[in-house]
Simulated scan of single mutants.
Amino acid sequence: MEKFFEWEYRFMMFLQNSIRGPLQNKVMWCITSLENAGFLSIAACLALLLQPKWRRVGEAATVSMILEFLVVNLLLKNWVARVRPYHLLEDLILLVQEPADYSFPSGHTGAAFAVASVMFLGMPHSIGVPALIVASLIGFSRIYLGVHFPTDVLGGVVIGCAAGFVAWKLTGGKLR
């Protein structure tokens, strides 16, 4: 199984040794900080709930965040108990404060994709696509900063999108 994950180690060391730089580090820190404690996702839910035209989307986005939180933070992180990459890769330099929980799946990524996927399903693509792009940047920032393995982020994407889809259907949203 260790052979399967070897590509993650190589990719993370490539990012550190070939892509990281002072400007990129600041940009990635800012991007990841947007989703600290779910801030951007919660703000998006509140903004949508306050606008009558987008209230149903806001309801679905809120439900998606709750579902994502339950699955990621209360179930999978503790059940899988995957160690963070900076604990396993001796040469990897962590660029943010050390998180207190486990690595799999990425909660930042899951929350961002839970809300972005609902926005993609319920709003014009001129809003939904940029929301998915921002969620992708948040996920990438988690790898770049050394906090998550790529498969942690991929898990967050899958769970976030699934939570978004389920929430959209539960709240009566229709697919186009």
Rank of each mutant, 00 (worst) to 15 (best):
L23Y: 08
D152R: 15
L89R: 11
C30G: 11
G164H: 02
G139L: 06
H108D: 11
M119E: 00
K169R: 15
G139Q: 13
S41C: 07
N78Q: 03
W79S: 06
G122K: 07
R142Y: 04
G38N: 09
G160K: 10
I66H: 03
L75V: 15
F39N: 12
G139C: 09
A43C: 14
M123S: 08
A43P: 15
Y102E: 11
D91Y: 09
L154D: 08
P52E: 03
G156V: 06
L88Q: 15
W29I: 07
A81M: 09
I138M: 06
V57R: 06
A47K: 02
W7A: 06
N25Y: 03
V157G: 02
T62H: 00
E8K: 13
E98F: 05
L76R: 05
P124C: 00
G173E: 00
T171V: 06
V27F: 12
S64I: 04
M12A: 05
A111N: 13
F120S: 00
K174M: 01
C161Q: 06
A114S: 14
M123A: 05
F39S: 15
G173W: 02
M1E: 04
F165H: 08
H108Q: 07
W168K: 05
L121I: 10
E8G: 14
L145K: 09
K53D: 07
I66D: 00
F14G: 03
V157A: 01
M12E: 15
L67W: 11
P85T: 11
V118L: 00
S103I: 09
A37L: 12
G164Y: 02
A37I: 12
S106V: 05
I93W: 08
D152F: 07
A167Q: 05
A100G: 11
R20T: 12
H148A: 02
F11R: 14
E59R: 13
V27A: 06
P85R: 12
H87Q: 10
A116F: 04
I31M: 09
G128K: 04
A114Q: 11
A60G: 14
G155K: 11
R142D: 08
R176E: 01
N73G: 15
G156E: 05
P85M: 06
A162S: 14
Q16A: 08
F14A: 06
